[in-house]
Nucleic acid binder design. Structure first.
Lengths: 148, 148
DNA sequence: TCATAGTTGTTACATTATAACATTTCATCC
DNA sequence: GGATGAAATGTTATAATGTAACAACTATGA
């Protein structure tokens, strides 16, 4: 089964469990994000939504994105204004990302020491973190040392 | 001496050392950023630049911001589309930020363990980091537990 | 069936950012 | 001082990203 397909099925199941509706529109947006091999901007998604038919207006895609973000099915990469599928939507979490500026691909990483370090640094300042944004921009292993 | 004033003098000295020009326009943008007690968007800076005179066009402020970013005199907070003064411009560095979504203030933090954790996580994936974006959004000690 | 909450459609507009080219200013050399 | 080239700024237009507000539709349960 394809990676994208697995994501969609899992999302379907999660939404059923949670009693929220993964409508066709939302499903389409999620599918487009999962099928892409790099983050898509809202307007790239819009462009891919109108297969023959008329292109929907921006609020359409932004509303679907809001829903998917709330459900933890996708993440937003702030420094790219773009969206990627979440690799582990079962338990809601924030992501840390390795963003390759050569090939455009994004890797979601996890690491106790990393997350602990962040939490500790925040706590030292009496700060309560609600939404960490951690995006390392650079060159991935694949692209490093070659033209891309 | 005021905090903002100290920043400006330091910037002045650094630019002289480096042989780059902190022109009046760039200095004004830096001053506005340093005087503000929260991050300013490019257009907020534009609004504050025209004291009586005609408001400059966007490229004016974006060019000044580019210069200041290059010189490490300011940082951009990606998740806010806004700019803050750098607390330690002597040696170029990337910043980690605690962004209070109540009062809007931003705290620049530093921590070996944090930075090491990030670098280690990246290296494990064979990733070469060029520009880390670390912004923890939440509530600062001052705002936590009260209306703000 | 009817009420209602949730979802989608639609128009208009706000905000953020850059491309492209003209003009001016500055430092340097002669 | 005047010529020259590089850097900085001015100007116009437009691209890219994101939201407010209200109308219309749809699924679902009382």
């Amino acid at each position: 089964m394809s990676e994208a397909r697995r994501h969609l099925d899992q999302a379907e199941a999660l939404c059923r469990e949670r009693g929220v509706r993964l409508t066709p529109q939302r499903r389409t947006v999620l599918r487009l994000i999962c099928e892409a091999e790099r983050p898509l901007s809202a307007y790239e998604i819009l462009d891919r939504m109108h297969q023959g038919a008329r292109r929907p207006a921006p609020p359409t895609v932004y509303r679907a994105l809001d829903f998917l973000l709330q459900q933890g099915l996708i993440h937003k990469i702030e420094s790219l204004h773009a969206f990627v599928g979440c690799k582990h939507p079962q338990h809601p979490h924030t992501g840390q990302f390795l963003v390759c500026t050569d090939c455009g691909r994004v890797n979601e990483i996890h690491g106790r020491p990393l997350e602990d370090g962040l939490q500790q640094a925040a706590r030292q300042a009496g700060f309560h973190t609600r939404k960490p944004v951690v995006e390392l921009l650079g060159t991935c292993a694949h692209c490093h040392g070659r033209d891309c």
